[in-house]
């Protein structure tokens, strides 16, 4: 009996994976077959694992990685220039390190437009790093738009937290 239950389970699992059972269309009468497009194959993606970083990047000045922006703005404010400059110095002295700048926005408005706005923020940080001597090959600016909010709320505090560009080192992305 156990075996039978197992078989039923396997049959169910197979059907789950294969979608609903379908028969190939055959035109034998004057009736029009309804085309069978029920099959949608499912794909699961894998994420990327983080590695270990040296202490200098996880403790002290270089552990600060976030640059915040005002609403609809993408210029780096005075208060964040030292932070970006510190990373520029480290990267200029350690050419083997690479960074990914991820730009973010708050949740309001078009997802795709926000993706572009987040890109502008990331690009502003990238441009400052390049001006301070970091090489092009060491830095990539990308955007997460409104898709990966650090603060999940729907209020001014959460929105301000999410208008942000983060500096990630190799191993963190």
């Amino acid at each position: 009996m156990k075996k039978i239950v197992f078989r039923i389970f396997v049959a169910l699992a197979a059907l789950t994976l294969a979608g609903c059972p379908t028969a190939p269309p055959r035109q034998e009468t004057d009736a029009a077959p309804v085309e069978e497009r029920g099959g949608v194959a499912r794909v699961d993606t894998d994420g990327v694992d983080s590695g270990n970083l040296p202490d200098i990047l996880t403790k002290g000045a270089l552990s600060k990685r976030s640059v915040y922006f005002a609403l609809d703005r993408y210029d780096i404010e005075e208060g964040y220039r030292d932070l970006v400059a510190a990373h520029a110095r480290f990267l200029a002295e350690n050419r083997g390190f690479k960074v990914l700048i991820q730009g973010n926005t708050d949740e309001r408005g078009s997802r795709e437009y926000n993706l572009s706005l987040g890109q502008k923020r990331a690009e502003a940080v990238r441009q400052m790093l390049l001006l301070l001597g970091v090489q092009e090959a060491q830095v990539e600016a990308v955007s997460l738009g409104e898709e990966k909010p650090r603060a999940e709320g729907h209020n001014e505090t959460a929105w301000a937290e999410n208008r942000r560009a983060d500096i990630l080192y190799s191993g963190e992305f």
């Binding site: 949608v40 194959a41 499912r42 794909v43 990539e140 955007s143 898709e147």
Partner: peptide, 16 residues
């Protein structure tokens, strides 16, 4: 965003 940045895929529904 599965590779930590936005990438464009074209996905065939019948085969995956």
């Amino acid at each position: 965003f599965e590779n930590k940045k936005p990438i464009i895929f074209v996905h065939s529904l019948a085969t995956g």
